[in-house]
Design a protein around this nucleic acid. Structure first.
Lengths: 157, 157
DNA sequence: TATGTTAATGAAAACAGTTTTCATTATGAG
DNA sequence: CTCATAATGAAAACTGTTTTCATTAACATA
C-alpha cells in the first residue's frame, strides 16, 4: 500500500518540517485511496497516534491542499472531504452522491471521452474568460437503490 | 424581468402557503438570474421587505430546493449558494471558480456536446451503480486574470 | 366578509464544523 | 548537542446554519 515517502522531499524542499502527525495523515489518505471527511481522517489517525489533535488534522489538510497534494470536496452536506491527488492510487475520477443517505461513490468510467471534452472546454474558457484552470470536479446527484423505495426523498409532508 | 407567478399554483397545489417573504425571495432569485449566497439573497430581500428574517430565507431556500425550484451549490468556501432551476432565465450552465478571490462565473458553452456525454455517463452509472441521477454539477477551479499576477495563489511563505 | 385552524414567521438561542490563540513541544540546521 | 523556531494540542472563539418557541397571518370554511 504505502511504498515510498514521495512527499518528504517535497516538504523539506519547501521548508516544511516532516512530523509524525503529517506522516500519519498522509498515510491514512494514502491507504484509503478515497475521499474522506475530516472526522473520518481524524478517527483513523488517532488509531495509530492517539496524541494527534483535530486542529492539526485541519491544518495539515490545508497545507497539503496548498501544496497541491490533496483536493477538497464539498457536496453540500456540511462536511468537507479530502482526497489525495498525487501519489499512490490517485486516479482521475468523479463522484456520485446519493441525496437520500449521503453516500458518495467514486467512478472513473468514460475517462477518455471526458478528458477530451474537458480539455476542449478548458481551452475555450481560458480564452473567453481569461481563466487558467487547474482542476475540475463533476458531481452527479441522485438516489441509490436503497433510498429509492416507496418513501420519497425528503420528508416533506 | 418578473413576468408571471408561475410558482404560486405549485405552492397551493402542494399545500404550502403563498407568503410575502416567499414571494420576495423568489423575486430576488428570479431577477438576479444567477447563483447567490444566502447573505446576498437576505440583503437583497430586506431592501424591499425589511421585516423578513434570515431564518425565513434559509427555510424558504430549503423548501424551494425540496420542491425542485432551486439548486444548492457548494464550492468549498463556506458559503452555500442557490440558484433557480426553473422559471424565467434559468438555462443549463456550470461554474468557473477563481481560487484566488472566490469569484464565480457561469458559463454555458459546449452545452450540446456536454449534454450528449453526460447523458451517456448517466445511463452507464445508472446501470453500473444502480443510481437514478437527478442532476449534475461541473465546477472548474482556476485563477482569474486579476489573481494571476506575480504573487502566488495562496499566501504560503 | 368574518372566523378559526394552523402553517409560517422572526428573534434568540443552540448547534456544529472550522479556525484562532497561545503556551508547549520537537524538528532539523549548525 | 544546542538552539531557533516551526509545529503542535487544548481550549476558546468564530461563523454559517438550524432549532426553539411565542406570535402572526394565510386561507378554508361558514
Amino acid at each position: 500500500m504505502y511504498k515510498r515517502p514521495w512527499w518528504r522531499g517535497q516538504f523539506r524542499q519547501r521548508g516544511f518540517r516532516v512530523t509524525v502527525p503529517r506522516e500519519t495523515i498522509i498515510k491514512v489518505l494514502s491507504d484509503r485511496k478515497k475521499h474522506m471527511s475530516v472526522e473520518e481522517i481524524f478517527h483513523e489517525v488517532i488509531k495509530t497516534n492517539p496524541g494527534v489533535g483535530l486542529t492539526t488534522v485541519y491544518r495539515t489538510l490545508e497545507l497539503l491542499r496548498n501544496m497541491g497534494f490533496v483536493s477538497k470536496l464539498d457536496f453540500g452536506d456540511g462536511f468537507s472531504r479530502y482526497e489525495l491527488t498525487i501519489g499512490d492510487g490517485s486516479t482521475h475520477h468523479h463522484h456520485l452522491v446519493c441525496t437520500g443517505c449521503g453516500k458518495v461513490l467514486d467512478y472513473s468510467d468514460f475517462a477518455e471521452q471526458e478528458t477530451a471534452l474537458i480539455q476542449e472546454i478548458e481551452r475555450a474558457l481560458n480564452k473567453k474568460y481569461n481563466f487558467v484552470i487547474n482542476t475540475h470536479q463533476i458531481h452527479f446527484f441522485g438516489l441509490c437503490k436503497d433510498c429509492r423505495g416507496e418513501q420519497n426523498e425528503i420528508g416533506i409532508v
